[in-house]
Amino acid sequence: MDRAELVELLSPEGLRLLDSLPEWDSKADVVRTVADLRKLGHSPGLVAAVLGQARLRQKARAKFGEFAQRMLFTEAGLEQATRLKVAALHAGRFARAGIGHVADLGCGIGGDSLALAAVDLEVTAADADEVTAAVAAFNLTPFPKARVLHARAEEVPLGGIGGAWLDPARRTTSGGRTTRLADASAYTPPLDFAFGLADRMAVGVKLGPGTDREVIPAGSEAQWVSVDGDVVELGVWFGPLARPGVGRAALVIRGDQAFELTAAADSADAPTGPLGDYLYEPDGAVIRARLIGDLARANAGWMLSDGIAYVTADRAFESPFARGFRVLERLPNDERRLRQALAERGIGTLEIKKRGVDVDPARLRTSLKLKGEASATLAVTREQGQRVTLLVERL
């Protein structure tokens, strides 16, 4: 969305038209909708702007729920925005630490600022992009204690502000294409600036879950967060926002429930051993936080092979930190014999899970020429270094 489109959208006519539209339906005849709106006298620019926002509002429901219908978005801003349930947890940290005024530096469309303002904290939000800052200002209109600046994070005056939240831009857009930045030093604002603020105030920094662990400063708390099986962020916390004795944390959110595994540092892997009766796939947040060993030991399990994120055990256990499978039988590793074994069992639908082996599940599924009414799950991995193919069923 450019500046001209935003001006159209923020006009009284634009906002009225946007709010009057029905919920976006991707299967609807968009050409006809455009024609109908044009017949009512709306300009082409306004029609494009409101339909673009209607589509983004529908897409944003996954992150913002019903709040999405009262917000404005940019494509890039929505992609990087924090889910509202996770943003609420961020805000809770600042509130519990007694920090009454928070700077949201690089606020994007204002998702985290919304959560901060919702717990009655004073918020100074800033974004270097003029359109994005204007969108954030619109979204924060209901909160009188929140203000938005069009400014780079490094330019925001921080006098009298007790804490800062930063979500550095990790993508760059050129020629209409967005590219993820691999080099953390190229983020906006740079990580040196973000982490450096911790010398003067309480700071939290949101990073991608796959961020190189080498950039995490010593003495900070690193918390990986997954939502319904999807690892969504790495939060790095400093000062009073970091919990004493917690250097690594895996926060697993499933529906409306949250579970957490914490440790002072990376946990040592559990010993390896032969396959037990059950196989467990740790949640991605547990894997990223390197707490697989603690998970295994807490449930009388062991590692299936060095460097592979599978836990095995002789008894079933329930844990929010792992998905469990009952091992039914070992199958041949050879594709021809595996195809025959699956055909004998009438398996026509196959989920293929793999870890530690060079297997393309889509190619393997095609080569197996599956036929039959039964469905099954196949785990292709290593047992104490040796490749194994296992027929398993979810617990």
Rank of each mutant, 00 (worst) to 15 (best):
P282F: 02
K145P: 00
Q80S: 14
A49H: 10
A202C: 10
E13Q: 15
R326D: 13
L18A: 06
E8D: 15
P274F: 01
D266N: 12
F94Y: 15
T33G: 14
P189G: 08
E260P: 02
A242I: 09
A164Y: 03
P244W: 01
R243N: 00
T377K: 03
R243Q: 13
L140I: 04
V252Q: 08
A125F: 05
W302Q: 03
M303W: 10
D127F: 07
G196Y: 10
F193W: 12
P144S: 04
A60F: 05
N139R: 06
T272E: 15
C107M: 06
L291Q: 13
A164Q: 11
D283P: 10
G219S: 05
E154A: 07
A268P: 09
P12D: 11
A298H: 02
I308L: 03
W24R: 08
E13V: 11
R32D: 09
Y187A: 05
E154I: 10
R83S: 11
R83C: 05
M1K: 05
A300R: 15
E318K: 12
R152G: 09
L279N: 01
I347E: 03
S319G: 06
A4E: 15
G100A: 14
S43H: 07
P361R: 02
D19H: 15
A60R: 05
V148I: 06
A343G: 02
G307D: 11
R152E: 12
S305N: 02
E344G: 01
A268M: 06
A218I: 05
V327L: 15
R387N: 00
T349P: 00
T179R: 13
R213G: 06
T178N: 01
A164F: 11
S11W: 03
S220I: 04
L331M: 03
R382D: 01
W224H: 05
L158T: 09
